[in-house]
Nucleic acid binder design. Structure first.
Lengths: 190, 190
DNA sequence: TTAACTTGTTGACTTAAGTTAAGAAGTCAA
DNA sequence: TTGACTTCTTAACTTAAGTCAACAAGTTAA
């Protein structure tokens, strides 16, 4: 299990023995069942998650509708935006499948950053990489039609379509379930 | 001038004397004229910018159309996503007004991070804050209609509508200029 | 000072997403 | 096993964005 995190981090930096020790030292796991809620709207949050196995969905409720913000799968990091803050969460985190995560928390992390400055450097690099990727997604979303967005999702994360229900995917694409259904039909007839 | 950066950074951390020295030591300014291009598609990039005065727009060209990615104004940071990398830029950076920036570069920054680890810690915090803000914008965009997006822009960045032309704003909102024109008309009649 | 270009508006038409309602198929639990 | 619920699809209709074309006003440059 531990090796999965090290494998992930090694994409960004050389894993020194010291860093490996730091990671192993702080490793702490949790398992959740399908349907479990990790965070509710209004909750305070003190944990972030690195997914080892499974799928987590973030969403909020607007006009009585669930709006999916993001799907997180293996080897991705879920950081509640209110983590360590005294502000309540604006959204929910829900397991779409049985899920195993590595749990982190700000206090531990700050302690680790003190002990192993290389780790904070790594966090900065990863935050910047994720920021860039997200900027690209956002831009692509803006300049695409719903149909193009769906095709893009098919291409880049095909397994999501097996793991999430259609109305969850629809709100992730910024459209209604009926529209997604029609888009799929349209594409089959092409 | 320098104080503007320190004021910005002080929102995130205590400015120690050491940090102040670090910033002043690396301060390096440039001025651009309205219409100047700071970065072209295909270019390599080795600079990032902190805007002291003025406005910068990032955009790319798709199907012969300029698609605005983002507008950056005073006290915001513009970091080309290919900075320090050997990949060409996917987009342009253009000054919408006469603009004064503080210039940074990866080599200098890494050097500074070595000398002043507090600075790297600060960069991590800022990257995480920007990431969270961007996630929120992205989510709001997805779950809004074009009209709602325009109203939101009016509310949060009203001065942008004076600083950028309507077709630039339109593509930023993910719609065509004609549609923005109609939305504005619709809203006046309300 | 004209001619060319840019910017924003408007109109007519097309296209596709939103809305509402109904129903089919599958899942789950009493 | 039956009834309730969830998920997805379909149809009819409404709404608004996209497309194409024309034009007015302002700006720029020869």
């Amino acid at each position: 299990m531990k090796s999965k995190i090290l494998k992930y981090l090694s994409k960004y930096t050389e894993i020194t023995e010291q860093l490996e020790n730091a990671i192993n030292e702080s490793a702490y796991f949790k398992s959740y069942k399908k349907g479990d809620i990790l965070l509710k709207e209004g909750d305070f949050s003190n944990e972030c998650y690195f997914i080892l196995e499974g799928c987590i969905r973030s969403y909020f409720v607007k006009d009585g509708e669930e709006k999916t913000i993001e799907f997180y799968t293996e080897e991705e990091v879920v950081t509640p935006s209110n983590i360590g803050k005294s502000t309540p969460s604006q959204y929910f985190l829900e397991c779409l499948e049985d899920t195993v995560v590595n749990v982190g928390n700000p206090a531990l992390e700050n302690e680790m950053y003190q002990k192993y400055p290389q780790l904070e450097s790594l966090s900065r690099v990863i935050a910047e990489v994720i920021l860039t990727k997200q900027q690209e997604s956002y831009t692509a979303f803006k300049s695409s039609t719903p149909e193009e967005r769906y095709l893009q999702l098919l291409k880049t994360r095909p397994n999501l379509l097996q793991r999430a229900s259609q109305y969850q995917i629809a709100s992730y694409l910024g459209i209604r379930p009926e529209s997604l259904s029609r888009i799929r039909k349209r594409l089959i007839n092409k």
